[in-house]
Design a protein around this nucleic acid. Structure first.
Lengths: 115, 115
DNA sequence: CTCTTATGTTACAAAAAAGGTACTACGTAC
DNA sequence: GTACGTAGTACCTTTTTTGTAACATAAGAG
């Protein structure tokens, strides 16, 4: 634990500089729907319409946008099936699965400490 | 791990509803400077001017704002010394220290997976 | 032809977050 | 009585994020 904090340990990711990796991680999962999307995809591959159903409070546009960013960051895989009407499936990449334990911890922390 | 995900497990915190605790946690530490502030305070108590020095890229106003929110959420303690010129010290509360391991993990994750 | 369906995109509007600058308070030292 | 120093607050602007509504596509069914 202590070894993470010896120095400032700033980092750069996608052209932006972050003070310590925490901010970089938050940049990746901090979008309004990203954490939930990752969490749902950790349970099963879903197609776009499945996600729309899960996130009935949002719009196609937001979902697409968040998914594209997650894809860009390499956490989510997007598989397009060449059919009409379209079929697109989203799933976690190996890298995407590595962040799930952290999300689980955040979930547990909220349950224990936020009321 | 699996037990966190049996149901939707939405939660309410400070009048807002979150899909699963992850979003609630992000609401608490997701501000632009909050994670860094917590991380610095986990190392030592600091007075306002110390924080200003650490976060030279921001303004008094932003710092105050973020600190107040952290205080409201019970993660940070604000101790005012009745002297002139003023002296105010910030430190983590017990609750505040409980989130540090998660921040450390985020830091480690970024180092390992983001480049 | 026209309608349906799934997965988008685009242009625009609204809301939220962050930033900038100036002003305050008040004991102390000069 | 004027300037100093810390820790703010008030007001306003800019930037970023989120939301809304309309349009796009193209195979297959009728």
């Amino acid at each position: 634990m202590q070894e993470n904090r010896e120095k400032e340990d700033r980092m750069v990711y996608r052209e932006k500089e972050y003070k310590c990796g925490i901010d970089a991680t938050l940049a990746v999962v901090g979008g309004k729907w990203k954490a939930s999307i990752l969490w749902h995809l950790s349970q099963r591959t879903m197609r776009f319409s499945d996600l729309q159903r899960q996130f009935s409070g949002t719009t196609r546009k937001m979902l697409t946008q968040q998914l594209r960013e997650l894809e860009t960051d390499g956490l989510v895989h997007r598989e397009v099936y060449p059919q009409v009407p379209p079929k697109v499936e989203y799933s976690l990449t190996a890298k995407g699965t590595t962040i799930i334990p952290i999300l689980d911890q955040m979930c547990a922390w909220a349950k224990e400490y936020l009321q």
